[in-house]
């Protein structure tokens, strides 16, 4: 299993815009790396990233091989209610890696 590091402020005021960061272990094999015997290392990347919060997917990204290994994505989010943020990374084969973090909104 790969490791993920997500950063969500533990507490926020209602309506406050907070910064969310997510980094996950993945080689992001581009499919363009030549093999010594000819041909290429087959492509295997995380092609999709999603963040669910308060009943909806609030941020998502479609990733291509030009995203660095161990992808790092940061974005902003308006804190609306206490609950869990669910982060999801989906690879070329459909495998899903999930990570969760709680936020308390007052």
């Amino acid at each position: 299993m790969s490791r993920a590091l997500v950063s969500v402020p533990p507490r926020a005021r209602r309506g406050e815009v907070v910064e969310i960061r997510a980094m996950v272990q993945h080689e992001m094999e581009t499919g363009f790396r030549p093999l010594p015997q000819g041909g290429f290392v087959p492509r295997l990347i995380l092609r999709r990233f999603e963040c669910d919060y308060d009943g909806a997917t609030v941020f998502a990204a479609d990733l291509h091989p030009a995203i660095s290994a161990n992808p790092y994505i940061a974005f902003r989010l308006r804190a609306t209610r206490s609950g869990e943020l669910v982060f999801r990374w989906i690879d070329d084969r459909g495998a899903v890696r999930e990570e969760r973090a709680a936020i308390e909104v007052a």
Binding site: R3, L5, S7, M23, V24, Q25, A69, N70, Y72, A74
Partner: peptide, 13 residues
């Protein structure tokens, strides 16, 4: 920045 330093993934591992 520990939340951006990819080496921290190895610390976690």
């Amino acid at each position: 920045d520990d939340k951006a330093n990819p080496g921290m993934l190895s610390v976690l591992e």
